[in-house]
């Protein structure tokens, strides 16, 4: 069970959150080609290591948090860019 330190509510169990996936993905410019959009929608770095990801605190403050978490140790390093 992950324990996620929410900056608004304090440290809470994973069950209070919804996962939102890779937070490093950026939408390409409106005039970018279809290959850039296909990469944006489908391709992921999927690192074995530190991963920037979205978590929605559904049963708390209902804010989207940007969490940096390790995908092997599950250690959480920063939330919204702060340790």
């Amino acid at each position: 069970m992950l324990r996620i330190p929410c900056p608004h509510c304090g440290t809470r169990d994973e069950v209070e959150f919804h996962y939102g996936g890779d937070a490093s993905v950026r939408r390409p410019a409106a005039d970018a080609d279809t290959a850039a959009y296909a990469a944006y929608v489908y391709e992921r770095t999927n690192p074995r290591g530190w991963h920037l990801e979205w978590w929605f605190h559904a049963a708390g403050c209902r804010q989207w948090l940007e969490v940096r978490r390790h995908t092997v140790s599950h250690a959480i390093d920063t939330v919204n860019g702060k340790p």
């Binding site: 069970m1 992950l2 994973e14 890779d22 990801e53 995908t71 599950h74």
Partner: peptide, 13 residues
Amino acid sequence: DRHNTYAQRGTQW
């Protein structure tokens, strides 16, 4: 388990 992981274990919930 619904979050990215390379760990061969599982979450309790």
